[in-house]
């Protein structure tokens, strides 16, 4: 192969990659475009590409009471992630650096709970929440989301803990550090990026969770996905409004995900990548 055809081939491959990426992300691009349209331009045949942009849809969404849902989502996501870390970090430590004898059993248990279909527990959860007066209550969601994310978080953080070199911990012990000091001053700073990656994944899954949110909350404690459900009942085609709502609902997680892409990769591969 000559250098010239090689370069041509490489250029073509790059072009193809760009094309595929743009096609793939097109529904999102279209969502952004549509969110700036007037409702008359949103649903047309053929689709409208040239239009006068407007912020009308966003103001409508805010008028329809979007902000309380957004606040609920932020509160539930933040606190449930915090709870996951509070419970998960010590557990991951007990399954890695100072492993208990039954480590593989405990790990198996955590992962197996992840495999229990959520539908299998929703009915008692509903009944229990009802009896406790916790229906449509953010705290119920916080506890459930923590339970949902904890198993995966323990698995991820365990693999990050395993990367901490044993010699470093021993060095700290020889240097005179007691266990809490070793953990706080030496281990924690080293695993911090891993914990951040784990927290990020928990945030994404909590923010996007739908099933519990729809079944256990309504106007009071509803999260962002619950707000979107309002759009299937309105049979009329408010596409521009829908797009604006979808964009606003997704934006926080989108931004976090974009900024922390590399953390995301580390978290997803459970620390298998250095």
């Amino acid at each position: 192969m000559t250098a010239r055809t090689n370069r041509l081939g490489r250029g073509a491959l790059t072009g193809l990659t760009w094309l595929v990426a743009l096609l793939f992300v097109f529904p999102v691009i279209w969502m952004v475009v549509t969110s700036f349209k007037h409702e008359v331009d949103a649903a047309t045949d053929p689709p409208t590409f040239a239009f006068t942009p407007t912020l009308e849809q966003f103001t409508t969404i805010l008028d329809r009471g979007f902000l309380p849902y957004l606040a609920n989502s932020a509160f539930v996501t933040g606190l449930s992630t915090l709870l996951v870390l509070l419970l998960g970090v010590p557990a991951a430590y007990a399954l890695s650096l100072a492993p208990v004898k039954q480590t593989s059993n405990a790990l198996g248990f955590f992962l197996s709970t992840k495999m229990l279909p959520i539908v299998a527990a929703i009915i008692p959860l509903y009944v229990i929440s009802q009896n406790l007066g916790m229906l449509d209550n953010v705290w119920a969601l916080i506890v459930l989301y923590a339970g949902m994310n904890l198993p995966l978080a323990v698995w991820m953080m365990r693999s990050f803990f395993l990367e901490v070199p044993t010699e470093m911990i021993e060095a700290a012990r020889v240097d005179g550090a007691k266990l809490p000091t070793v953990l706080y001053r030496v281990v924690l700073p080293v695993v911090a990026p891993g914990i951040a990656a784990t927290a990020l994944i928990c945030v994404i899954f909590a923010w996007t969770e739908f099933f519990y949110a729809v079944n256990l909350t309504a106007a009071q404690a509803g999260t962002v996905p619950v707000f979107l459900v309002g759009f299937i009942t309105s049979e009329g085609l408010f596409w521009a409004q829908l797009s604006a709502a979808a964009l606003l609902a997704s934006l926080p997680v989108m931004i976090i995900g974009w900024v922390a892409q590399n953390h995301l990769v580390r978290g997803l591969s459970m620390g298998a990548v250095k």
């Binding site: 021993e170 060095a171 012990r173 020889v174 240097d175 550090a177 007691k178 700073p189």
Partner: peptide, 20 residues
Amino acid sequence: LPPKDRDIAMVFQSYALYPH
């Protein structure tokens, strides 16, 4: 006795420096 009470210092093969 635990390591910290032995009045010793150790140099490790991997050096075990604290990276942060």
